[in-house]
């Protein structure tokens, strides 16, 4: 009999306390952000898909088309092709494609590159209706940034 009433008392008390917590939360400021209207700054360390680094001095990429990134990518999503242009010593890039549908953002390609020619982009707003939209032409993205 005693337990019957004590259970009622402690139980009731715990329920009222719980209600107190939610009541307090009801009048506390919200903690979320209305995403497309407000945006939180993303950390500069964010690892998006890869991009070629633009060497501002030479106004071109650093890549020497050695193909290390292509070989070491665990998901086989990079395609690099270089060609020796006439009158130039180095090979120049003719193709640098990334199949982002398969990329696991592991960062192997960035670390393996002998010339440190790759970086992570800051793009996180990626959404599209087709698979092909995620086949990025990294070389073209670089051309666009060129001055």
């Amino acid at each position: 009999m005693k337990q019957y009433f004590s259970e009622l008392y402690t139980g009731g008390k715990s329920l009222v306390e719980g209600l107190g917590v939610t009541m307090k939360a009801l009048f506390s400021p919200i903690v979320t952000v209305q995403y497309p209207r407000e945006e939180i700054d993303i950390t500069p360390n964010y690892r998006g898909h890869i991009d070629l680094i633009l060497d501002t001095g030479k106004n071109t990429y650093l890549c020497i088309s050695c193909g290390m990134c292509e070989k070491s990518c665990p998901s086989d999503c990079i395609k690099v092709k270089g060609k020796k242009m006439e009158g130039e010593k180095k090979k120049s890039l003719v193709l640098f494609d990334l199949d982002f549908t398969k990329c696991s953002l592991c960062g192997t390609c960035v670390e393996v590159c002998p010339k440190d020619a790759l970086e992570y982009s800051q793009e996180y707003n990626l959404a599209a209706f087709t698979k092909e939209a995620f086949h990025f032409d990294i070389l073209k993205r670089l051309e666009e940034r060129r001055i």
Binding site: T22, A25, L26, F27, S28, P29, I30, V31, T32, Q34
Partner: peptide, 13 residues
């Protein structure tokens, strides 16, 4: 709305 504010989010906006 109440559910939203209880959970510290704005609810329908």
């Amino acid at each position: 709305k109440i559910a939203g504010h209880v959970q510290r989010r704005p609810g329908p906006m």
